[in-house]
Structure formats: C-alpha cells, structure tokens
Simulated assay, not measured.
Amino acid sequence: MTTLAIACQRDATLVFLDTETGERLETLDIAPEPHEACFDAERGLIYVSHTYKSGWYFQNSGRASLISVIDAETRKVIDVIDIAPDHGPHDLQWDAATDNLYVAVESGEGRTGAILMIDPATRKILDRIPVDAHGPHWFAITPDSAKLYTANKETPFVSVVDLVGGTMTARVEVPSTEGIAALDDRVIVAGPVFSGADRTEANGLFVIDTAKDVVTRFVETEEPVTAVHATASGRLLVSEVPASAGPEGLVMRDGMLRIYDSGSLELLKRLPIGAGALSIRSTADGALAFVANSGSGTVTVIDVNGLSVLNTFAADGGAHGMAVVA
C-alpha cells in the first residue's frame, strides 16, 4: 500500500491517507505551522519543516527553527531537529544518491539565507551554504546531484549551488520566483512571486539551461503559477493559483493543474484542482500525482498518463507539503 503524508499548516497535523481509497489512516498532531515534507526511504522517516510560529511568508509572527522526524511505519514523532540559530526552514529534500538532507532557511541577523546540509544518520548540520538571498524557499537538485537551484521568492535571481564544492557559483536573473523543478538539462521555475499584490510581470515558467546557467525560454501562463513538479513519466506539472487581495488577506479561488510534456513543454491538459495548490508529488513510476490544496484542505489525485482527475481526498486545514511513502 502506498501512503500519502500531508503536512497541514493551519491545523498543525500530519495526515496519513491511503492513496487508492483516500481512507484516513492516522492524524498525527505535530508542532505548529508544518510546511514542507519529504520521505527518507533509507530509514523509513518523514521530515517536516516548521517555518513560522504562525502565518505565512509575507505575514507571520516570527520564524521557527524546527524539523520534525516521524517514523513512517509507527506514524510517531521520534525526534525534532533544532536548526537554531538558523530559522524559517522551508523546502527540504532527502537526496538518495548522497544520503544528505538539504533544507532551505531564511536569512537572520548577519546571516544570509542558505541551504543546510544535514546528516540523516546523526541529524547534525554538516554544512551551511549561503545563497545571497533573504528567503530561499523551494529548491531543485539536478539528477546527477551535482547542483542545486534555489527559488528565492522576491529576490530577483535564482541561486546556483555547487553541491560538490559546497559554494554558490552563480545567479540566474529572473524577476521573482515560486516553485522549481529539475529536468535532465534544464531547471523550470515559476514566477512571479505569489503575494496577492498587483504586479506588472507576466505569469509563467522560466527555463534555465543548467550547462550555461542562463534563461533560454519563457512559457507564459494565464494565471499565477506556484508549484512545479517533474514526474518520472516525462510530465511537468504546474499549479495555477488564482487569488486576489481581500480585507483579511488573500482570497484564493479554485485553480487548474497544467500538464506539460517535459521535453517540448507542450501544454497537454489543464485539469481542475482546489484553491491554493502549493505542493505536488507523484509516485515513483510517475503514473499518479497528488496536488495539495492549502485553501481547500484537500488533495487532488491525478492520473498523469490519462490526463484526468481521479479523486479528491479530504485532508486538514492548510494542506501543504506532502511525502509519498511506498
């Protein structure tokens, strides 16, 4: 059985669902503001970042410094990694090739935003790689595990990190960025930043050549786009997040999932999803994909090859990061 673990930001829970039936297998209470999640297949562990004490990127009551470690089999928290004095952990990814856990953290007093490299065996920080940006958020690791690219929200460039040398080596100029994914020879990053404020830039996807670290193409979209995910089946999935600024903050409306051929970037289909889709994951074979709709508190299940919506499962409030546990 394949299980989906969903970090639900507003309710401070990690919800475990059966991916075939949507049956809720467990609801685990965890620390406030769970944000992103990833699965360590070597150890059977789920890592969840806790980014803020409350709120979101542009409006919060202070940054947190915690990463929860959850046993995927017992569905219990077995440890908490405290990354202080760093704070504001966002995206985190376990890289099977190097057996490292990478975490993006925000800047602090006298410290620029950075990528932390953590040893999953000892849960100790091995390295801190500055990326010269306030808020590195999502990031993408190239298939050869040699380079990492950070999407830096409002900072007008993508940072390029040499993971072998442990240094930032380049900036790729873009207006501002959201989700990001790596293909064989390209990195795809969504922009501009999703803030609810009026912007003049076109919405779309920047295509970065990873050999030269330059933007070679821009694919425009009708609506703002946030999450970007590449599947093993040769599809690129991108979430549209239509929203507007209201008196009490952002008002998010139901969006669409854009499915592209990852080679040509031809748009194959647009499918209806929920509101505020901030994370996308897929199964190892790329046949199924899952879209976490933070505004709706749901997960949309996608037949990637059939280009159709299979189901919508209920999660908890603020469904955000996900881990697929096989």
Rank of each mutant, 00 (worst) to 15 (best):
T122R: 15
P143S: 07
D144C: 08
G113E: 13
L66T: 11
E109W: 01
R63A: 04
K76N: 09
F58W: 12
R75E: 01
S145R: 07
S61G: 11
L92R: 01
A104N: 10
E109D: 12
K76H: 08
K147V: 05
I129S: 00
D86P: 02
I115G: 01
R111C: 00
K53N: 05
G113I: 08
I78L: 09
V69D: 02
D95I: 09
A146Q: 14
T122C: 14
P89T: 05
M117Y: 03
R63S: 12
L116W: 01
H87T: 09
I67T: 05
R123S: 11
D95Q: 12
L126Q: 02
T122I: 10
I81F: 03
P89H: 11
G62V: 04
A151P: 10
P85F: 04
K153R: 12
V77A: 03
A84W: 00
P130H: 10
A96K: 15
G113D: 11
G55D: 11
I129N: 04
L116F: 01
I129Y: 06
T155E: 14
D119A: 03
I129F: 05
S65T: 15
L92P: 11
D132Q: 15
E73A: 08
D144I: 12
D127F: 00
I70Q: 03
K153Q: 14
P89I: 06
T112R: 10
F58D: 15
E106I: 02
N100H: 11
T150L: 10
H90F: 12
A72D: 06
K76S: 07
I115C: 08
I125F: 00
L116R: 06
V77N: 02
T142C: 04
D86H: 13
G135P: 01
Y149G: 11
S54N: 12
Y102H: 15
A133P: 06
V103C: 03
T122A: 14
F139D: 06
Q93C: 03
G88M: 09
A114Y: 02
N100P: 00
I70S: 02
L66N: 02
R63G: 00
L126C: 00
H90D: 03
E106K: 12
I70D: 07
R63T: 14
S65D: 14
G110A: 02
S61C: 03
H90W: 04
P143E: 15
G62S: 02
I118N: 01
A146I: 08
I70H: 09
E106R: 04
T150A: 08
A104Y: 03
S107Q: 15
E106T: 04
T142D: 08
Y102R: 11
